[in-house]
């Protein structure tokens, strides 16, 4: 066991980890942050996607002990003050949620994209989501949700800077 401080959703968490513990394991089993899902454990499906220093990554394939000093965002951290993040709201409004198992990972992929690129093309959205598998939706409404969120976030931004 070694000690590591992980900054998760803006809060420092000091925890003891084994060498081989993945971030996914720590999130789910140590910190009870079960919003991040495990669909494969082999870096293929994106259900465990989180954002590490602005980049969407599969938490099943990153060792927790290497993340000291990194900023980690998970699905639990993106709604603010009881208000859903615009991407979460857009997933609901666009009908992008079915069984929901891919949803947290999809939303984190979308967030990393929109944080870096507020006005993406459909191709960029599809590329960003191509690391996440979904077996229910055919991705159509997920892409639409990301477009809707992008639009709303830009409007919010413009509204915010104008006032």
């Amino acid at each position: 066991m070694e000690s590591v401080v992980l900054n998760i959703n803006g809060r420092d968490r000091k925890i003891q980890v084994e060498k081989n513990w993945t971030l996914l394991y720590v999130l789910r089993e140590v910190l009870d942050l079960t919003g991040t899902k495990c669909g494969c454990g082999t870096n293929d499906c994106g259900a465990c996607r989180v954002i590490i220093d602005g980049e969407a990554r599969n938490s099943c394939c990153v060792q927790a002990r290497r993340l000291e000093g990194c900023k980690i965002e998970t699905i639990e951290g993106i709604a603010k003050g009881g208000k859903l993040h615009p991407i979460q709201q857009a997933f609901i409004d666009a009908g992008a949620v079915q069984c929901g198992f891919c949803t947290p990972g999809m939303i984190m992929s979308a967030k990393a994209l929109l944080d870096a690129c507020p006005d993406p093309t459909e191709e960029q959205i599809r590329e960003a989501l191509s690391h996440n598998l979904c077996r229910c939706t055919g991705y159509v409404k997920i892409v639409e949700a990301v477009q809707l969120a992008a639009e709303r976030m830009r409007e919010e931004q413009e509204g915010g800077s104008a006032s």
Binding site: A79, L84, I92, G95, G100
Partner: peptide, 20 residues
């Protein structure tokens, strides 16, 4: 048209699946 009834649980990661 309306979204699935537990959509809010799912987008927040709070839907509890058996593995959770």
């Amino acid at each position: 048209g309306k979204p699935i009834e537990d959509a809010a649980w799912k987008v927040t990661g709070r839907k509890q699946y058996v593995a959770d």
